[in-house]
Amino acid sequence: MNEQQLHDKLRATGLGGIGELESSARDPFVVVEASVLLEVMAFLRDDSETAMEMLHNVTAVQRETGFDVVYHLCSYSRHHSLTLKVIVAQPEGEAGDWEPAVPSVASVYPSANWHEREQWDLLGVRFNDHPDFRRIILPEEWIGHPLRKDYVYPSTFGEIPLELDAIPLYERDENDPPKPSEPRPAGTPLTQPPSEYSTRPDAGGRAPAPEKKGES
């Protein structure tokens, strides 16, 4: 089945909160309300025609208006795949450390377990009713979620120096401990480029202006 047929099939179930098939992007996707996510997943897995045996990937994407949580499902017996999306809009007046929450699908697809833990670890998206909800990659004591756009790069982790020009552990003077460095502004990388030329001006990702070259 192609995506259109899968979408029609989903619509025919009578579940509310299933959006249109968006084909504006390269891969078409279906936007689903968080409230019916588990039902939709269970239907797609159990129906003999859709037969989505595997949840291939779970991704959270931070956008300016909130977070998208993207689920890639695929069927190995029917050779088709579908992308589902849950959009969590950022409420008005919420600060940068706002944590969106979506229901965990680990009860339907156990493979979501690690994926969801990773998204929590790196992006700070909560998955409600997750069986084992803790950080997976970074240490438990880590502060912040590094893939956020406003993440503040740390200069140390405990005693471990993370900066390029840090004093080595074994050369430190116990009587004169190194001063904690100034907190860098959010989003600033750990090392500054050596000269104004050697970094791309729009490396932040969002600025669309293409680069003008003096030479060409």
Binding site: T191, P193, P194, S195, Y197, S198, T199, R200, K213, E215
Partner: peptide
């Protein structure tokens, strides 16, 4: 400075 710009790790200083 085109080589420095192309460098992914900013290792060229001119």
């Amino acid at each position: 400075h085109l080589c420095a710009k192309a460098c992914p790790v900013d290792c060229i200083e001119i």
